[in-house]
Design a protein around this nucleic acid. Structure first.
Lengths: 250, 250
DNA sequence: TGCGTCGGTTGACCTGGATCAATGCGGTTC
DNA sequence: GAACCGCATTGATCCAGGTCAACCGACGCA
């Protein structure tokens, strides 16, 4: 683990006094704070408590259920899957985390990670020591706000799983949401690579893998999407969004 | 709205210097902070930002989707139901809040309440101005921690809805969780009154009301529970917990 | 005391998606 | 390039739980 400070990639920002402050370009907290116009001194303080973890290879675990919680982490690149295993040892996928998204927020209350997190492809992370961040938040109301906001946001995130939607609605919503999340990161909203296996998608949506397969085929036959292996193109995103509207509610 | 300060019921506490500090007995924050041994001065600060709202009658709304968010609230007595309405105007129940539980946490991120909250029976609340609480948390790390903890806890709360469980498992888990929540408040874990209609339970668990009815009957025929109207007795709680174990995972 | 209403219960039937069972098809290994 | 492996696809069947419809029973009201 790099002791502290940012590695590549960096983003160059001009601070108040004209001095440069460097930030990892995908770090959610850093950028959030930047947007709120903190002075250089405080930016440095936040900057210092970040550490870039070494890359995780596909299949490597970032944390496991029961590990003691010490840090939250922003995904810099790659995709992370979180899951738990039920009593019979079957996996239950809880979520997928793309670059810019934060993992570990659900561990704060119990001081232990309540689930496993595994890299679906090579993953780079920014780790934030939570105790240090909380202390810092005490002096930086904007950071505190940002943390409250992130936590509160996640409470409403179970939307996709909640609700008794049809398999079609779920899958359409899954794709539409992925599209939005990629778009939010400046990537193409209509062409991307699915980092996860069909079985993971099915598991996440609480469907059978066969159902996912059949519905993807139907979507393709209907000219909604174009799938080849893990590559996917959303040919008719508006119609997909329309299919997903009952799940997304806006 | 009572301008500020606590009404009945109160709890009498001895502070460091022997002076008395009064707190509403069901206020989660107050007690949480008390447990963390703050000095009298700070207790008073927290105390002051609480206001007891006038009672809400059955069917009255506490807030509605889209209302601007200003405060979170701890339920003092009664039961609150939160819900949204889908595109076709159908209600989707999100949760039930019993005395001691906190509503409004999911509103922080958007500064608007993302759902409706309605009293299922006469409800008393402690309201906490969130901006003022956040400011105070800046000087009270323990309060900040407590807020982080509460928020983080709620992230994992969708457990009951998540997962593809059978109707039987869902209902057993619903009852077992209610039992635990009542027990945590010092009430009987085996005999209580359901504040919500069968249709609400069904809606919350994403089942048909008919299914809830049938399964409650089956549970009763199997000697698991005893139901009369809204009164319920958990005759064989251990077996109920066993039925629910795949949902609760512990 | 009869009537209406609304939540709850029960029965009969139907269907979306799970399950089971093959088969296909890239990729990797030797 | 043959054999293998894991994921993905496709087809055939089944069933948990939804839907529709009828009925019940508690409560309010005139």
């Amino acid at each position: 683990m790099t002791p502290s400070g940012h590695g590549q990639p960096r983003r160059t920002l001009l601070a108040d006094d004209g001095d440069e402050v460097h930030f990892c370009s995908t770090c959610a907290f850093s950028s959030a704070c930047l947007e709120q116009g903190y002075d250089k001194e405080r930016l440095r303080e936040l900057h210092v408590l970040v550490e870039h973890a070494p890359p995780f290879r596909e299949g490597e675990h970032i944390f496991r259920e029961g590990d003691t919680f010490d840090a939250i982490a922003a995904v810099r690149s790659g995709t992370v899957k979180t899951y738990v295993t039920d009593l019979e040892g079957r996996e239950q996928v809880l979520g997928f985390f793309l670059p810019g998204e934060v993992i570990g927020l659900n561990a704060i209350s119990s001081a232990r990670y309540p689930c496993n997190a595994v890299a679906l492809e090579t993953v780079l992370l920014c780790r934030f020591s939570f105790p240090r961040m909380a202390t810092l938040a005490t002096r930086m109301p904007g950071l505190q706000q940002q943390l409250f906001r992130l936590l509160s946001e996640d409470i409403g995130k179970a939307n996709l799983l909640t609700g008794d939607f049809t398999a079609e609605e779920r899958l359409a919503a899954f794709l539409a949401v992925l599209s939005r999340r990629y778009a939010a990161r400046g990537l193409s909203p209509t062409r991307f690579r699915l980092a996860m296996a069909r079985t993971d998608i099915a598991n996440y949506l609480r469907l059978a893998a066969e159902t996912v397969s059949r519905i993807l085929r139907r979507f393709q036959d209907d000219g909604l999407i174009r799938v080849d292996r893990r590559e996917i193109e959303l040919v008719d995103l508006p119609r997909l969004e329309r299919l997903a509207r009952s799940v997304l509610r806006n």
